[in-house]
Design a protein around this nucleic acid. Structure first.
Length: 211
DNA sequence: ATCCCGAGGG
DNA sequence: CCCTCTGGAT
């Protein structure tokens, strides 16, 4: 896909989503870290329900340690992988209190050193909590990139590299949100809503029979 | 059956 | 690079 076409796509996606930062319910670093950690292999609806209840009581790593692993599981027991997530979040809270003064670090290295925090979660925290020009390639962005032809790749790492190469830093933070929102509401996994898609004429999907 | 705003390990 | 983990939704 050429640069002109890609630029036009992002222009339209921006028009579709004028306030991209509202995509996530939380921008507070710690709440964001917890919410994104819980979101692995879980629906956003289920995660948002759990975090809304949890954050009534817990907004800091200190508060989470007070709640304890068993207490935490009560809030997230309907979410996939909740045993692992609870264990990781407690372990991460200990590190935050002991090594980072109870604050969420703003560097990729420190973030990814936390149990349960990988590249995707670190990128979201850097993007949304700390305003860094990262693109966190989740399943939505991976699908949209490949289906449309914006930045196709075999795996998430390749898609991330290609996106960072073709999206200028100046609007990379917003582009991350445009892509996710497009994937969630229009370019959905099973049955994409091409009828209401504003970039259909530029999308490579209609020329294929799969993906 | 397949997918969901992944991480960790083989 | 690919698999598995695990619960709910579609």
């Amino acid at each position: 896909m050429n640069k002109l076409k890609r630029t036009e796509i992002f222009t339209r996606l921006r028009h579709d989503n004028p306030h991209p930062a509202t995509e996530l319910e939380y921008t507070n670093p710690y709440q964001l870290l917890v919410a994104v950690t819980l979101s692995a292999q879980a629906t956003d609806v289920g995660v948002n329900k759990a975090t809304r209840a949890l954050f009534q009581k817990v907004r800091t790593p200190q508060a989470l340690l007070k709640l304890g692993e068993t207490g935490l599981k009560e809030y997230i027991k309907t979410i996939g992988l909740f045993n692992t997530k609870a264990r990781n979040l407690i372990a991460a809270a200990r590190i935050l209190v002991r090594e980072h003064n109870g604050e969420v670090p703003a560097t990729r290295e420190a973030l990814e050193a936390l149990p349960g925090v990988g590249r995707k979660t670190a990128n979201v925290v850097l993007n949304t909590a700390f305003g860094q020009p990262t693109i966190a390639v989740d399943t939505h962005i991976f699908r949209v990139s490949n289906r449309t032809g914006i930045a196709p790749g075999k795996n998430v790492n390749e898609v991330e590299r290609r996106l960072e190469r073709c999206v200028p830093e100046a609007f990379r933070q917003d582009a991350h949100h445009w892509l996710i929102l497009h994937g969630r509401y229009t370019c959905v996994a099973r049955t994409p809503r091409c009828g209401s898609c504003t970039i259909e004429d530029l999308c490579e999907y209609r020329h294929k029979t799969e993906l």
